[in-house]
Nucleic acid binder design. Structure first.
Length: 735
DNA sequence: GCACCCCAACTTTTT
DNA sequence: GTTGGGGTGC
């Protein structure tokens, strides 16, 4: 060891016993069960710093994998703060980023062109639609989105078309599309996200030399958010680790939290944690349970909720911070009342000096934000919604990027199709079909086909113009910097002029200008990493696909934070509102039909609760507008799972507020009043009335039908679902 | 080629 | 209620 004990001490000082144990584990595979707010990122980065500082590994001898670019960046930032090292050349990144890097380095062995492009989801979908047209597939029977999901989940299981089971005609056709899709991608030199991983995995399994090279290089492999890995990612990690006797047996330091696994819908397998324990003979799991974020009332609530899950590795968060405030529960009359409650509370907090940035409003589904946004807007409370379109996903940016892609490689059919007639230049569906037809006949790219048409004369004015435009752009681009090329792509293409003429095109033009800025800063940040002869274009295109950019600009201003619970994972706020805690929304009704769906919903609730540092509000509404209809829900079972002693109920009575927003009130009344006027006398229960049933428990009256002698009543029993009961026999009581 | 209309969907999402 | 995609008509 070349480093003095003193500086080692400073690196390790302030860690608790468990954190210290994790950071200084000997050379062996380890599973760190890191609870919410337990200092997970700190442990991970300190582990890396410690390994380097004690001379056990050089910065280039380790591999650190994350899921998001944000997490990777954060890790590098913290690392440079701890150690005076140059992080360039270190393999710290996302699964996709690292696979991309490896495939670029070995593109020949991976059978890819050096300039292979990465399809984002939108590109992939349009590629599939295009293929399905060629193959004459009925998109009623095979919705392109489903086909895409099928292809991606196959790849995420590590499967190619040849190895997929298909016993019925439908799945056989599906498999056929999968196979043709892969051929099309190969022809066009493009890879989708899942392909990046699968291609990389296959390359390493096939090519012993390359595999050995990396296995010898990466003695230490560190994985963040291990509970979110899918099957292929786990297989990929095993390859790097080297599992067989002859292989080096590198060790994996896996950090994760099974209780925060909320991404099974996109292929994540919590089970990888248990498999890892067995496969890598993990001796003991290090549990980080001391929480540095929340007061204990909040943690106790979270612990109580999650303890209802059966399949857990087991963990209980604790804090030395004291009980803190009770968890506040508000029962709202309807969604609008819920929103106005939140607005009132936020105002109070803000007046008391809380920064809006420190307050988050969480919901299960994006649709719920509308009502709240409306309330915030009319009360002039600044807010920021996370989610939605990101920079490189905006239409105008994708158009400009398509021109750049064509400069880079005109055979890029996807890019060509996107802009061949945008801005419009008289190439309609007819001429496009002809072009695609002749490309198919000649078995070449659309660009080649277009060139041939122009060469043969009578290509049509539009097509001739397009070919000339791209050729001119390519000519102009020679010797230009990336920034200048980007300018060309937005101007010569006619994009800017097009948006200038549009009524509401200012934002789009501003975005196009922002794209030029993005190119400038990309070059500033990466110029020394680029090869000497590279103008950075391929790298910039990759950057755009792999890092779609921040969701929204002006992050600086103080604003209330609105986001889904999923988007809140990994974040923390001084005060958190969790809204819409009703059966059907949270847990979401769809989840109840899924395997272990309820447990995942409960983990979602757990994630939501553990975001709060100091104050936590839970709210539910007796009725809310959903899909254009009023729905009556009962309180989420997750609320019942919190011990009463931790709660403070702000209004347990369901009396409607007199100050209700009038238009909603009317629409609410008209819905129920319309029916009750028909059969008022026969109806003993009002719609929205909470009732209890001997067998089904608590419920809410949703609707009814029939006449006085034969009336049926529909009740939402939450966990038991919607039930029709005959009035005559059902023994209902007011709840 | 484009504007307009209708109908269906509608949980969560990173790369 | 809203949005987006697809189809139709000028």
């Amino acid at each position: 060891m070349t480093i003095s004990n003193a500086s080692q001490d400073s690196l390790l000082s302030g860690l608790n016993d468990k954190q210290l144990e994790a950071v200084t584990l000997p050379h062996q595979s380890a599973l760190i069960l890191a609870g919410a707010g337990s200092g997970k990122t700190r442990v991970l980065t300190t582990r890396i710093a410690w390994l380097i500082q004690t001379g056990q590994v050089s910065p280039t001898g380790l591999l650190a994998v994350t899921f998001t670019n944000k997490a990777a960046k954060e890790m590098l930032t913290r690392l440079t703060a701890m150690l005076p090292i140059n992080t360039r050349g270190m393999w710290v990144g996302t699964f996709h980023g690292l696979c991309n890097r490896l495939l670029r380095a070995h593109h020949r062995e991976a059978l890819l062109p050096a300039t292979f492009q990465i399809l984002d989801s939108a590109d992939q979908l349009s590629a599939i639609k295009r293929l399905m047209k060629v193959m004459n597939v009925d998109d009623e029977k095979f919705p392109p989105k489903q086909v895409m999901g099928y292809i991606n989940s196959c790849k995420e299981e590590g499967l190619r078309a040849q190895s997929v089971d298909a016993y019925d005609p439908h799945s056989q056709r599906m498999r056929e599309i999968f196979e043709e899709y892969d051929k099309q991608c190969q022809r066009e030199g493009v890879v989708d996200f899942a392909e990046l991983l699968l291609r990389c995995y296959e390359l390493l399994s096939r090519d012993t030399n390359i595999r050995q090279h990396y296995q010898e290089r990466f003695k230490y492999i560190l994985v963040d958010e291990f509970q979110d890995t899918n099957k292929l990612q786990y297989m990929w990690l095993k390859l790097f680790a080297g599992m067989s006797k002859e292989e080096p047996n590198n060790c994996i330091f896996a950090v994760g939290d099974d209780d925060q696994s909320i991404y099974s819908f996109r292929g994540a397998r919590v089970g990888n944690m248990r498999d890892f324990e067995v496969d890598f003979k993990v001796q003991n799991i290090v549990k980080l349970e001391e929480n540095y974020r929340s007061h204990s009332n909040i943690l106790d609530a979270a612990n109580a909720i999650i303890s209802n899950n059966k399949n857990r590795l087991g963990k209980n968060l604790w804090t030395s911070a004291g009980a803190g405030e009770p968890v506040r529960v508000y029962q709202a009359y309807n969604d609008i009342d819920e929103a106005s409650f939140i607005v009132d509370e936020v105002k109070i907090l803000h007046n008391d000096g809380w920064a809006l940035n420190d307050i988050a409003l969480l919901y299960r589904s994006n649709a719920q934000s509308r009502v709240i946004e409306h309330a915030l807007f009319s009360h002039n409370i600044p807010y920021r919604v996370y989610g939605g379109l990101r920079f490189f996903e905006r239409a105008e940016i994708k158009h400009a990027m398509a021109y750049l892609r064509l400069i880079n490689n005109p055979e890029d059919d996807i890019a060509l199709l996107r802009v061949i007639n945008f801005p419009t230049r008289g190439i309609g569906a007819r001429s496009l079909e002809q072009l695609q037809e002749s490309a198919r006949a000649q078995d070449c790219s659309l660009w080649q086909a277009a060139i041939n048409k122009v060469g043969n004369g009578r290509p049509g004015k539009g097509l001739e113009g397009f070919v000339a435009l791209i050729k001119q752009m390519q000519d102009d681009a020679k010797g230009l910097t990336l920034t200048e090329m980007t300018e060309i792509a937005t101007t010569i293409s006619g994009l800017k002029n097009f948006y200038k003429l549009e009524k509401e095109g200012e934002d789009r033009i501003a975005n196009l200008d922002e794209l030029i800025n993005a190119a400038v800063s990309f070059m500033n940040n990466n110029s020394d990493a680029l090869e000497d002869n590279s103008n950075g274009l391929t790298e910039f295109l990759t950057h755009a696909s792999l890092e779609a950019g921040e969701h929204q600009a002006d992050v600086g201003a103080d604003a209330l934070q609105l986001m889904t619970v999923h988007a809140a994972k990994g974040l923390e706020f001084k005060a958190v509102f969790i809204s819409g805690l009703e059966e059907g929304l949270c847990p979401h009704e769809n989840s109840l039909y899924e395997n272990n769906g309820l447990e995942e919903e409960r983990r979602l609730m757990y994630v939501a609760v553990t975001r709060a540092r100091q104050r936590l509000y839970l709210s539910h509404a007796q009725s809310r507008m959903l899909h254009g209809q009023i729905r009556y829900g009962i309180a989420s079972r997750f609320l019942d799972e919190i011990p009463d002693a931790l709660l403070k109920r702000l209004n347990s009575k369901q009396a409607p507020k007199p100050s209700m927003s009038s238009n909603y009130d009317n629409s609410y009344q008209s819905a129920s009043a319309a029916r009750s006027s028909e059969q008022k006398s026969a109806m003993p229960w009002k719609i929205g009335q909470a009732v209890s049933h001997a067998k089904f428990g608590q419920g809410v009256v949703v609707s009814y039908e029939g006449n006085a002698s034969d009336m049926r009543i529909q009740i939402n029993f939450g966990r038991e679902g919607l039930k029709w009961l005959a009035m005559e026999y059902a023994k209902l009581e007011k709840a």
